[in-house]
Design a protein around this nucleic acid. Sequence first.
DNA 1: TCGATCCTGTAG
DNA 2: CTACAGGATCGA
Length: 269
Amino acid sequence: MPELPEVDAVCHRLRAEALKAEIVAAHVVRPAATRPQRPALIQSKTPGRTIEDIQRRGKNILIQLSGDLALGVHLRMTGDLYVIPDVRFRPATARVYFELNGGRGLIFDDPRLLGKIHLHRSADLVKLLAKVGIEPLTPDFTPTVLLDMARSAHLAAKLFLMDQSRVAGLGNIYAAEALYRAHIHPAKPMNRLRRPKIEALHSAIVTVLDDAVQSARRTYSNPGRFGDAEEFPLYVYDREGEPCDRCRRRIRRIQQGGRSTYFCPGCQK
DNA sequence: TCGATCCTGTAG
DNA sequence: CTACAGGATCGA
């Protein structure tokens, strides 16, 4: 269930293990994973190609193949993407898998079947990802940019942060953690935040994601599983009823957009 | 902009 | 059994 830091870790791991690998064969076990594309597309077009590059855009993974084709992978809630030494020993939840040179396997693993893997021409994939919002860990992401986006957003702060077309990469956990660190109530309308609060939020987003990236690269270096974020300190997520580390008030859970939001009623006004 | 929906697994 | 899960899309 990856957010930006976990997707980054997956890409990091893949770059170390799959760069320059050749795809020998491709198998779509569950067509749902490629829909609306036909399984035959990946199966017929990827064999013989080499993995040239692996990039991340928001929570999307781009696997650049030789011949100007690219695989676009989205892990959604339970997806994972990793290399195993012997493709014959893939798990039962492998939804798409590639046999690589040397008998290795590149596995798209997704028990819940919500994730997607598609094949596009490289240029088309870039176009498809144009609607993804600003990358929070680049110099483009400044307090002023965030303020500009906030002005027109008649939307709760938590929902704003979860919207991938605005700031890309935050999910349920890190959105809640960023708001906690910035002392902002998750239901606060985004367009009512003043510049100082926006600056605090900007800083919280960058700090949380940056720290989580470092943490995830360490804990997720283990293929086939998502190390839980145990190494990374979560102050509110999944801590309903526990005392806040700052003010000792009990962490509360509310529903926003059909999902749980955790926050401290004492220090997030 | 909101709710329903896609799926399966697991915790209570 | 029900509730819920670190996500995103689609339709109204």
